[in-house]
């Protein structure tokens, strides 16, 4: 584990706990192919959004989970190579800096009790200000319900952008999944075969968006647009 996470002052100990959990999952759950990605599911759609930190994927996954989607994870996509399904890991969502206000706003518009879902803010952590958000109750209730992945969206946040769905090749999506995987190299051949299969069975695109609301619209639009081709799989 990187030294910047331990030790931390007791008042931001929650952050150590989160990093410890992440570290443990990363080092001891190698039976799963792991993606650094937001993962959500709805009605047979298993959506993986691989992206680097700062792309807004955590916010987007958390945002979708308060608009009818099941949250698998905001940053730890786990894939069971035996059953070929995504495994939910709905632990508390770690919100950073500007995304804290965005999510409070987002959740408050659909739930009066939204305040209960957010922890206090932890200032001065190695990642800036952090706040934890409880996943939606439905996501927790469904934490044992797995979904087969069939949609890959690469999210790009740009505050000045015109919202747009851009086509990408399957080869590009393949490499982005490989790049986002924390244990592709450790698993080796099985990981190569798994990602090949996921890409083969998935519709893929890139979305560029200026805010959460537009991002959710683009995701829904792409889901709608691909519903027929997904149905044929």
């Amino acid at each position: 584990m990187s030294d910047e996470f331990v030790p931390l002052p007791a008042k931001i100990g929650m952050v150590s706990l989160e990093m410890g959990l992440n570290w443990h999952v990363a080092s001891d759950c190698k039976q799963y192919l792991m993606f650094h990605a937001g993962v959500v599911a709805k009605e047979g759609v298993g959506l993986i959004m691989p992206a680097a930190s700062g792309s807004g994927k955590s916010t987007l996954a958390a945002g979708l989970s308060y608009r009818g989607w099941q949250l698998h994870s905001d940053e730890f996509g786990l894939y069971d190579m035996n059953s070929q399904e995504l495994v939910p890991y709905p632990r508390a969502v770690s919100l950073k800096n500007e995304s804290i206000a965005v999510m409070r706003d987002w959740v408050s518009s659909v739930d009066d009790k939204y305040n209960e879902y957010f922890t206090e803010e932890f200032h001065g952590t190695p990642k800036g200000t952090i706040c934890y958000m409880r996943p939606h109750k439905d996501s927790i209730d469904k934490m044992h319900v797995k979904t087969r992945p069939n949609l890959i969206i690469l999210p790009i946040f740009d505050a000045t952008a015109t919202p747009e769905i851009r086509p990408i090749t399957k080869a590009m999506a393949f490499f982005r999944l490989v790049l986002s995987s924390a244990n592709y190299g450790d698993i080796g051949k099985d990981a190569f075969l798994a990602i090949s299969r996921i890409i083969e069975e998935s519709e893929v695109c890139e979305i560029i968006y200026p805010n959460l609301e537009e991002a959710v619209k683009l995701v829904e639009e792409f889901v709608e647009k691909t519903s027929e081709s997904r149905g044929q799989l």
């Binding site: 001891d28 759950c29 190698k30 039976q31 190299g185 450790d186 099985d190």
Partner: peptide, 9 residues
């Protein structure tokens, strides 16, 4: 399974 992958890698 996790430990088998670890050892192989």
């Amino acid at each position: 399974q996790s430990n088998t992958y670890k050892s192989q890698s």
